[in-house]
Design a protein around this nucleic acid. Structure first.
Length: 254
DNA sequence: ATGTCAAACCTCGTTTGA
């Protein structure tokens, strides 16, 4: 089975591309980020017609996440339990025995900013919640737009971007703390192209020049790591007209 | 050196966030 994550940067704008992508890539699970729509505007019927069950957690203008699955999701959770948050950033559900957590991690704007402090608090809360989820669900995947690079391999200009947002030691320490729970970066389990990124700024012809970052990740528990047979970024949708700035990442399980 | 996109609204330009 295949599971995927994609930050669509407005589902209203990107719905046709998501439906086209699902038709070409009929993954069992797809989590979406940055829906940028309220719950009443979610295109549930379009996904039903495409053969997907949907769970969603949206808000006006910003953020918003969804969980699409061929089999229905159970035990659905929206946002991090016990963590007060104005933003719709997390959706979780159990699909075919796998605990699926989709997240749109805070951007953080700049080190030292209020938004950076919020990012750190949010990551603390996420980690403690995921720790419990892992204990309850050995087969678990945590995927989405993390807005954090693991290391310089994930950065097109590691010198120029040293200690800037997405690349700071503080953020990377948080990411390693998630790994420390017993999770593994699926992409790095398999050989990858050089300069393998998942996001490219809309400006400066960044995609054409491959000036990107790998900030969209699929982390798997030990039980799922044992089942993983492939994981890759699908750059094709980034070549669409009016693309999202992010490309999907797809994990294949035996 | 510069080069974008999407949404909201005191709405057809400007601001905010990414």
């Amino acid at each position: 089975m295949r599971l995927a994550t994609w930050n669509v940067n407005s589902l209203s704008i990107r719905l046709p591309q998501v439906l086209d992508w699902l038709a070409a890539n009929p993954v069992e699970v797809l989590v979406l980020q940055e829906l940028k729509l309220t719950d009443d505007k979610f295109p549930a019927q379009a996904f039903t017609d495409a053969g997907y069950h949907a769970q969603w957690h949206g808000q006006k203008t910003y953020n918003g996440v969804a969980l699409l699955s061929k089999s229905p999701a159970t035990d659905v959770v929206k946002n991090i339990p016990g963590f007060e948050d104005d933003h719709a950033r997390v959706i979780a559900g159990t699909v075919e025995g796998i605990r699926v957590i989709g997240g749109y991690f805070p951007n953080g704007q700049a080190p030292g900013s209020d938004k950076f402090a919020y990012k750190m608090r949010w990551l603390d809360a996420l980690r403690e919640w995921v720790r419990g989820e892992l204990a309850a669900h050995p087969s678990l995947v945590l995927m989405g737009d993390y807005n954090i690079t693991f290391d310089d391999l994930d950065v097109w200009d590691p010198v120029g971007l040293r200690e800037t947002i997405h690349c700071t030691t503080e953020e990377r320490t948080q990411l390693q703390a998630l790994i420390g729970l017993g999770l593994t970066d699926s992409v790095r389990l398999f050989p990858q192209p050089e300069k393998n990124y998942s996001w490219w700024d809309y400006r400066d012809l960044a995609f054409r020049r491959n000036r990107g970052l790998r900030i969209d990740h699929i982390l798997v528990s030990e039980a799922l790591k044992a089942r993983a047979t492939a994981c890759a970024v699908d750059k094709l949708p980034r070549k669409n007209e009016r693309p999202s700035d992010h490309a999907p990442v797809v994990l294949t399980l035996a």
